[in-house]
């Protein structure tokens, strides 16, 4: 654990985070369940957080980790409001299938 910086190149972290982000994008595109789409967004947020922390450590700059902290704060607020919206949608349509919510589409 002492020399992660010396052993793992930053490119590995970039590859891993890109892969996680792409998985999140695919989830948003594939799924119809609003909850799973929310989870995919959380995966994307987390992959970006990981890359921010990696760059912050490799640059020896703490501002990146502070920024990750604020990203987590905003994510927590977003999830609270988003899940309240999901519950409200479920009350109105008795389903959380997003394909039913197409009134504003056209």
């Amino acid at each position: 654990m002492e020399q992660t910086i010396n052993i793992i190149p930053i490119q590995y972290y970039m590859l891993l985070c890109t892969l996680l982000f792409v998985i999140g994008v695919a989830g948003v595109l594939i799924k119809r369940n609003a909850l799973v789409i929310f989870m995919s967004i959380e995966i994307m947020l987390n992959s970006v957080n990981l890359l921010l922390v990696a760059f912050s450590v490799y640059h020896n700059d703490p501002a990146g980790q502070i920024f990750v902290f604020f990203v987590m704060i905003v994510a927590a607020a977003e999830v609270a409001v988003g899940l309240a919206l999901v519950v409200m949608v479920y009350r109105h349509t008795h389903s959380i299938d997003i394909d039913f919510l197409n009134k504003l589409k056209w």
Binding site: M1, T4, L50, V53, A54, S56, V57
Partner: peptide
Amino acid sequence: HFILLNAQFI
């Protein structure tokens, strides 16, 4: 991963 990067607070 964060612990591996020595970012314990995060």
